[in-house]
Amino acid sequence: MATSTYLEAINQALFEEMERDESVFLLGEDIGIYGGAFKVTKGLYKAFGGDRVIDTPISESAIIGSAIGAAITGLRPVAEMQFADFITVGFNQLVANAATLYYRHNIPVPMVVRAPSGGGIRGGPFHSRNPEAWFFHQPGLKIVAPATARDAKGLLKSSIRDNNPVIYFEHKYLYRRVKEELPKEEIVVPLGKANISREGDDVTVITYGAMVFECLDAAKKLFEEHDISAQVIDLRTLQPLDMELILQSVQKTSRVVIVHEASLSGGIGAEIAARISEKAFEYLDAPVKRIASLDTPTPFSPILENEFMPNAEKIYNAILEIMKF
């Protein structure tokens, strides 16, 4: 066992998959000698050379388009967006091409787009967004959002091995703040399977990414101060959603709070709430509550950003409110 940060876990997954499978290669802006803006690909250029760790021009559309081209010829590209915010520049390549090629032509597109997302890092409106809901609406894409170092590693390995285009949202705030002991043995975490981060009976808290830790803090405090037992579900994969686990938990607790860092309206929480309403309405003792960032661009001011984002206190209060029904 050795301690690894979330960022190091991603680096390890890339290294191991490149070593395991020669068809895996990386492309992105300054990911080679420089090691990427966040240094996620540090050391990989030296280990695998410039043919497999490719520096590209500053064009997300070209990066994703090249990855699609490589994927349909049998390679397994992993493309890096410097910040998830810039993925919009390659939006058409992802939703019109990558997502539909298998449906249109029966051609698998085994590619991963790594998208460093999330706020709390004082990055302002162009470097802090959580754009997963845009892609959630597009059939043909898989979406992953790990919270722990173990999942960051295991889910990336599964994403690379998957025959579908996968958008892998890695949370920038967690890069060097999450540290865990990881086993030497290979970690592969299957896509589409959520994880129960904390067992509980009174209320189900559904979340993913950096919000997992805020939910766990809130759950701990609720138990200590009010004897309320919250079951925290870390979705890990957003598309496909693990509805089986979600519904099992709802049937047990009858109360649901959904937490995500992305803005509230049209977010993934809305879809989950709708599905719970359709499939488990008779089990509910209270309306499904959503906690998310405000429907504004991400503020640059730290004080405003703190107000803008969900946190343990807001989650704690929301759960107390739900428990009153």
């Binding site: 803006a37 966040f38 240094k39 890092i121 990055g123 920038k172």
Partner: peptide, 8 residues
Amino acid sequence: QQETDKAL
């Protein structure tokens, strides 16, 4: 945060 600032 310093590493993030460097990237930003």
